[in-house]
Nucleic acid binder design. Structure first.
Lengths: 222, 222
DNA sequence: ACCTGAACACCGTTCAAGT
DNA sequence: ACCTGAACACCGTTCAAGT
């Protein structure tokens, strides 16, 4: 009775399975951060001892890389019905949205080493979109690298910001500005005061500008 | 005598200080990866118990964020003598080089929350370069975000690759290709076989292409 | 086939004690 | 002022034992 508090399963306890373990792990990482996702806590949340989890995942690394593949499964694939540019624009926005919902995903190391099926599928469809638009193999590699580097890097910068809501941003910027030696860093102070502290400022709004810059540049490559 | 094996100080033991602690921590992270940088191991390397380190750093978080600031100090600042584009091009290449020498630096969370003096100085000088080139405050913010997102993301993708040398790349690509269901992922297979397995392929070579794409795009914004 | 309890070899960090 | 030894509350993971 005391053991079951986590999930709130009312009737009989749900039989553990890999999908349930993954979903619960993702929920914990989303809510409390990846650093608080421990095998013991995950077990507790599922009403089970930590050691039971090893019947469903090989180890914590297996758990983490599978979680990343689950995030890739959430990304909208480029559509065959759109032209290449708007197809890739939509999937890029969807990609950033997924990384924004699951900020821990970009920090999981080793997920590039052995990508899961959803990740492979996603990459294959993006490459297909470039190739069918007329990009050569070499140019496709260049384009893919440039576009996804931007998306990953944007998500990383967004994640590293110490604020999310507009109110938090304003409050944080005020504190930073107060601490900042403005004599020494005048340009940084100016940007903070006159851009970040502007009403309605939201870093996420910067995303489409850089995205279009890159997509326009890729179009020029064609 | 047994205790001093790590550093190899011959004569009297070197007095511990913050700079020595930071440099040794960076050396460990560079050589063995950030996951093997523990307070106990760092102490051992310095010929001291782990607890002594707390006389020089507040805690492990303080250590990590200070290490990141030391990496920023290695980046070449944009020169006043170059035009804005080549000044930012040089510092961008230098930025990627620094992240390539210290791949753990992009994974340190919380380093964006309270940036160190070298980081602030670096940001200030990059913003200054945009402003003096004629970018408005708003356009400077857009440009800065786009450019550094690309650099961070490229470094992250580069780091997540399971190979570094050309030989490793070819060997790894062969293995990946053999495992890959080529019927299911034909475009990914094609790119791997005909681009990655090309003699002389090196992912790092992709960097300048995306960089110039972005810098040219920014120039068009002016 | 799945779950558990105890144990192992680790972590970061504290605190009182030494010099 | 700096360093140490013991201890605390954690980790991931193993293994034999239970059902």
């Amino acid at each position: 009775m005391a053991k079951r508090s986590g999930t709130g399963d009312v009737s009989s306890r749900v039989r553990l399975n890999r999908a349930l373990v993954l979903d619960t792990a993702i929920a914990i990482a989303d809510e409390s951060g990846i650093e608080s996702l421990t095998m013991r806590k995950l077990g507790e949340q599922l009403g089970v001892e930590a050691m039971s989890l090893y019947n469903h995942v090989a180890n914590k690394d297996d758990l983490l890389t599978s979680m990343v593949d689950a995030v890739f499964a959430e990304i909208e694939l480029p559509s065959h019905n759109d032209d290449w540019k708007s197809a890739l624009r939509k999937r890029s926005v969807s990609f950033r949205d997924a990384l924004s919902r699951h900020p821990w995903a970009i920090g999981v190391k080793g997920s590039g080493t052995n990508p899961g099926p959803a990740t492979l599928r996603h990459h294959d469809r993006v490459i297909a979109t470039f190739r069918n638009a007329g990009f050569s193999i070499t140019m496709t590699a260049h384009a893919f690298s440039a576009l996804d580097s931007y998306i990953y890097g944007f998500a990383m910068q967004e994640q590293s910001l110490p604020f999310t809501t507009e109110e938090e941003t304003a409050a944080m910027a005020h504190i930073l500005l107060a601490q900042l030696p403005t004599k020494e860093f005048p340009y940084l102070a100016e940007l903070t005061a006159q851009h970040v502290l502007t009403p309605g400022y939201n870093y996420a709004d910067e995303f489409p500008l850089g995205l279009d810059l890159i997509l326009d540049g890729l179009e020029r490559w064609l």
